[in-house]
Design a protein around this nucleic acid. Sequence first.
RNA 1: GCGGCUAUCGUCAAGAGGUUAAGACACAGGAUUGUGGCUCCUGCAUCGCGGGUUCGAUUCCCGCUAGCCGCCCCA
Length: 429
Amino acid sequence: MIQKPKGMRDFLPEEVEHIRQLEDRFIHLSQLYGFREIRYPMFEKTELFERGVGETTDIVTKEMFRVISAANLEKYKAGEYDLRKEGLTLRPEGTASVMRSFIENKLYARAMPMKLSYMGSNFRNERPQAGRFREFTQFGVETLGSDDAFCDAEIIALAVDVILQSGVPQIDTLINSVGCPVCRPKFHDALRTFLADKVEHLCGDCQSRFEKNPLRIIDCKVPADQQRIKGHPVMIDYLCEECDQHFRSLQHYLDGLGVAYEIDPNIVRGLDYYVKTAFEIKHDKLGAQSSICGGGRYDGLVQNLGGPDIPGVGFGMGMDRLLMAADLYRPTAETPERQGSYLIGFGETAKLILVDLLAKLRRAGQTVELEVNQRSMKAAMKQADRMNARYAVIVGEDELAQNKIAVRDLSSSTQQLMTVAEFLHRVEE
RNA sequence: GCGGCUAUCGUCAAGAGGUUAAGACACAGGAUUGUGGCUCCUGCAUCGCGGGUUCGAUUCCCGCUAGCCGCCCCA
């Protein structure tokens, strides 16, 4: 049997209904907040992600799915295709693509700020785990063209609204400032100095992080390491005047918007482009992958990708994790009210009458199904019941003889003979 | 990339080295003439794949594969 590739999932109708609810809620709320949806390709030039996400990030160095056509694969084997220059990659996140689209379509020429939302599949070749899949869906928004801290506060408020309104009662909204190219180096120096004599006692991961990304050491999960680095310097103590002011404003605006949050100086974002605001929203009952939403400010990104110097702030929300969290609190569904009709005909003549009725009902916007498995009356009724139909319409020899149809109301267990016209009339009400 | 756990009917799930592999739900068919929801009856698996140990393995061991969980990373 052919199975789906690792980390991919099928969604059955019941789940899709829940997903649809989340999508609708996200779309609705983001519109309320002034965001308009944008769509962009499933794959892009590899270079876009290298430059947009960061060449040294794990995402770019080992988690991207390359895309190549059969013809180009042959060229590649022959050494005539440059993966680096021409290669394509399945999108691992949304922001880089949105930026590309923003620049390519010259949206910066329109009124600023430009507020864009998006949702769709992203792909990362990671080891699957609870809340982590190779194809996952992200909801996201980007506000481009303003560095006002209100924009940061606004998207955090939106994210919180989406999650709360999805039925997840308890979330932790953590904010931090990761500084900017002006103040971050000073902090890095301070951190390195602080860690210098401790690094050899830390875990293996941290030792390699010391060179690569010392910030990551701060949220190492090894308890012994946490003990050893107690009292480490934190970024928010090293912010430059501008960043510090921005971070204060953010808090004021969040207070004003009525968003509950905590300052967590250890929040670090994995993508290279973040400056100033970094935030994360977590739910503690999701296992290891507890972060539902993460985002922050990326003032240099648009320029970095070849556009004008335009600031931006955005978030990505893990729809799958939101769904898992929502599932934890979803009240057990009450059986919905019976609706629609199930048509049972015995013999070809009867069936043709019902086909005609079915077409009329559907045109009238009614849910209706025709029995097609030549079931016995008993089995057909059972099927009607299972489908939660309101009416079972039966046409057999008796009904044909009288030129009528038998209509059984499954909710009241009453049945009567009537004409097709009478039934249509009753259903219209 | 590293580590742990698991692998029995469509689903959930018992189970012992030895000729009937429980049960429940679901599904199919029945319980006097063309009728649902309750009840009753009947039907429905050789135990992931490949090796090995053994007189004999689905039950023990090894490998593989898959899934799950954790590290890492991140949404």
